[in-house]
């Protein structure tokens, strides 16, 4: 047993941590930031989807929307509990921000965080009706599958494990959206809405992958919190889009 290795070397070599007691200070900050970004995005996504339940065109789609609202909130709660292990006040955290708050549709945030929370910028834009919500759900769902696959390899094992449990249910949310597409595309009017929504959401979802050559990525990789650079994940998503939406002539 080589007992002389430091924790940072251990992490750089692919080691994993399970306890807040072992976590170096800088690692702690970056890990909490990653977890907060996940929690805030899920809470904001859940709150945003709640507003479209009443636009759902059928009982089945209404149930699908409710399920997405319910499960995304539940996913947020799981990771928030892990933040609580580090001292976060989880009760206050849930209410410290208006998760349903949105900016105007035409706002342009790029990849920047905005306001007092860490949600991905895409969750600051409002949904406009059912077709728009379906498109956003599919585009962002395909993105988050790739992003969660990445976080599921993070060196903080309790977080990685939670994400690996969450990921299949998130993928199911995307499938609900993909399933709703053919009906929307069969009608000329809703097809035009879908096409406009794809044009609207595509660059905004792309921005959630962050900048190419990110300096933070280098730090996160050294800590084992990330593995593959932003641009590589973005390229995976572009390929997914072509595969899933190409057959419909949407990309």
């Amino acid at each position: 047993m080589s007992g002389s290795m430091g924790i940072e070397d251990y992490l750089a070599a692919g080691g994993q941590l399970t306890s807040p007691a072992n976590v170096p200070p800088r690692y702690r900050g970056e890990l909490l930031r990653l977890m907060a970004s996940f929690v805030d995005s899920e809470l904001a996504a859940s709150a945003g989807f709640a507003t479209v339940i009443n636009t759902a065109p059928s009982t089945e789609s209404r149930i699908a929307a409710c399920r997405i609202v319910l499960e995304k909130a539940e996913h947020a709660g799981r990771v928030l509990a892990l933040m609580g292990d580090f001292g976060a006040d989880t009760k206050r955290y849930e209410t410290h921000h208006d998760w349903a708050a949105r900016l105007p549709r035409e706002a342009d945030l790029g990849a920047a965080r905005w306001g007092g929370d860490m949600r991905l910028s895409v969750f600051h834009y409002p949904l406009e009706g059912w077709a728009d919500a379906v498109v956003m759900n599919v585009l962002m769902g395909l993105a988050s599958a790739i992003q969660l696959d990445e976080l599921g390899r993070a060196s903080y094992a309790p977080f990685a494990e939670a994400i690996r449990e969450i990921a299949p249910r998130e993928r199911a949310h995307t499938r609900l959206g993909v399933k709703a597409l053919p009906e929307l595309l069969a009608d000329a009017k809703t097809r035009r809405e879908v096409e406009a929504s794809v044009r609207y959401w595509r660059p905004r979802v792309a921005a959630t992958f962050g900048h190419a050559g990110s300096a933070r990525f280098a730090l996160l990789r050294r800590f084992g919190l990330r593995q593959r650079p932003n641009e590589a994940l973005l390229a995976l998503w572009e390929a997914e889009l072509r595969e899933k939406l190409g057959p419909y002539g949407l990309v």
């Binding site: 970056e30 930031r33 805030d40 976060a88 206050r92 955290y93 410290h96 007092g116």
Partner: peptide
């Protein structure tokens, strides 16, 4: 590093 800016998350 920061997240909540409300003195809640640490």
């Amino acid at each position: 590093p920061y997240a909540c800016k409300a003195g809640v998350c640490s």
